[in-house]
Design a protein around this nucleic acid. Sequence first.
DNA 1: TAATATGTAACACAGTTAGATACATATTAT
DNA 2: ATAATATGTATCTAACTGTGTTACATATTA
Lengths: 141, 141
Amino acid sequence: MNTRFAVATHILTFLQSQEGSPASSELIASSVNTNPTVIRRLLSQLTKAGLTISQMGSGGGALLARSGSSITLLDVHRAIDEDFTLFPLHQEPNPQCPVGRNISKVLRGRLATVETAMEHELSRTTIADLATDILDIKSAG
Amino acid sequence: MNTRFAVATHILTFLQSQEGSPASSELIASSVNTNPTVIRRLLSQLTKAGLTISQMGSGGGALLARSGSSITLLDVHRAIDEDFTLFPLHQEPNPQCPVGRNISKVLRGRLATVETAMEHELSRTTIADLATDILDIKSAG
DNA sequence: TAATATGTAACACAGTTAGATACATATTAT
DNA sequence: ATAATATGTATCTAACTGTGTTACATATTA
């Protein structure tokens, strides 16, 4: 199971809940319940995508690079799942067969709209939304 | 790479193009360019889901169980990708942390709408559409 | 200069997937 | 009846992926 997207979203929501105070990979790892290196690997990708900033040294750690309300789940997905394919195509169907020769092109076209719909829906939720959802659960419970 | 959905779709489109004449796993495998057992495994799932019928013995093979225009990509997805999760969640975040305690529930809720959007879009294409797309390419080229 | 923290390389382990062989069972044709 | 054909499923493998882990060079702060 590839849980990178979920962990990356957890990281960002954690940073949002920190309200500007840097969080070390060790602190985040204790919330996610994993190894700090796993967190640093993901933070490295998030930083490259411009979603986080990291400060080395004592008192350092990770911060959101911009407002949580401007970071959507689509941004996270694009930062983390670089070679994502919703439904991967099989390689080299038989070009001698009319179906084999054309199925890849046809499927690619039809699946593109599916992936677009997924992306559109991902873009409707922000990291700030997730942090708010959590606060809502806390105040309701 | 999990290409089962693509191969299953290829199989069904192939059957649609056969116009009611049974196709053996060997024949289909030559179109997909893989081993007949791979085809039989997928056909077994498609038959359980009521999308195909198989006839043993000489002259036998697989057939669509119903009209290709009534079989959507969502039907195929549900038949083949039984334990599908678009974005799997990480296990056991730290319950001592407010974010860790609630992130799974919150993410599950937000991602449900994404998966629903994906499914809705999958349901808009049928096997008959794919067969028509292929014929269109052939007549245009 | 000591302590803290990141960034990344390297490795082990478990789980997944496609492909392959094998064979019992069912159906058809002769 | 018997041979030929075809499915359904079990089993094994090799390649690939993802997570967790250790290690260490580099950067920053106190």
